[in-house]
Write a protein that binds this DNA or RNA. Structure first.
Lengths: 205, 205
DNA sequence: CTATTTCCTTACCATTTGGTAAGTTTAACT
DNA sequence: AGTTAAACTTACCAAATGGTAAGGAAATAG
């Protein structure tokens, strides 16, 4: 019987759980199945995370760290106004493509009332507040059009989440080269953001 | 003990199941709970639908009938080319607003691999084929730009499904007046369709 | 070498789940 | 009235699930 490799059991559990949660959903995920797939007993999982919900929270948390790090990177750049937003959007789409499981998890956890949606809310609220404040200050100095920041942010958010559905649906329909729709979505989101926020953007009504 | 009302038990089961499936999901839905909420025994449900999956299929089927009827109505109108598409899009958004549970169900059932996704596929395929054929013929006579019809249709589809997420997320964030985002989405979808399909539409690149 | 903590296992359990089998009641038909 | 079929119920059950309790191995510390 081989002994425990360098990347600890805990990490492997998280990986496997992410996969299962994001593709099959929380309820359809069985601790026994995860354990078996790792050649480990269910109680090992419960030892590390005490409860199934705890496991989900840990998965969400790790994913959020991943995301927040990437966001931080953009925020620490010296991009201003519109360019900053554009960079953020690009970053998120890049991340979504590189790490599709994150999208699936986001989708799973986004349904209000679902287990883990509270956790998501807790993690997102600071980001949301920060973004809101920044946008408001940008609006004050006229670098941004005046609108409801929350509405814009949440719409952008749900565009990204919706992307998960789209990619999966297209793949299920046998359309493998799914990059084009993603690019289209990104363009759409950009336009939406531009129309909503960029004061220098000429509007066609 | 009151006796069975005019709208039979079967219909009431379907109503309740639709509600539960579309808000809590398939796995999180328990037959016992549905039964209890209707003041009926679980075996009554199984008598009418033999299995849980059968119940889901019946729910999906009824919802699809609902949808297909509405589609049929538009298709039987004498609208041509672009106007026809616009009418379809309007109809779907109207339906989605009037019957939010349908959106939730669609969302639940859209995830590939989910129980009921096969059924959805079976129901959608004829519609899809019909739409594809029509679009191809429109393309041949030059009333529509040449693109991949499936891609366009599926993108439109996932926009609508994504709407379910968006509405729920906004509501969870306490934004009640959720009509504006819906209108925005519809405009976006229209523009997407127009850009993809309308040969007379001036493109800005 | 011993004590302790970390990590993981065996054993067990209460509950819930979808589902089967076999009535029982109600309505419909003849 | 008697037969039949439909609609529901009571009685059960096997399987799976998340979780508790307690103990064993293995590394680490003293």
């Amino acid at each position: 019987m081989e002994k425990y490799e360098k990347f600890g059991t805990k990490e492997k559990i998280l990986d496997s759980a992410l996969e299962s949660f994001s593709t099959s959903g929380f309820d359809a995920t069985s601790l026994d199945v995860i354990a078996k797939s790792l050649g480990v007993r269910k109680q090992t999982i419960l030892y590390h995370f005490t409860t199934k919900k705890g496991l989900l929270n840990a998965v969400v948390e790790r994913a959020a760290e991943n995301l927040i790090d990437s966001i931080e990177e953009v925020l620490n750049s010296d991009l201003k106004g519109w360019e900053r937003i554009e960079a953020l959007a690009r970053m998120i789409f890049r991340l979504a493509l590189r790490e599709p499981l994150l999208l699936g998890l986001l989708r799973e956890v986004s349904r209000p009332g679902s287990v883990g949606s509270e956790r998501l809310k807790i993690l997102m609220t600071p980001l949301m507040d920060r973004a809101t404040l920044w946008m408001q200050s940008e609006m004050r100095v006229g670098r941004m059009r005046r609108t409801d920041p929350r509405l814009v942010i949440l719409s952008a958010y749900s565009t990204v989440v919706g992307l998960a559905t789209e990619i999966e649906v297209l793949r299920a329909a046998g359309i493998e080269q799914a990059l084009r729709p993603v690019a289209i979505r990104r363009r759409e989101l950009m336009r939406f953001l531009r129309v909503s926020l960029d004061p220098d953007y000429l509007q066609s009504r």
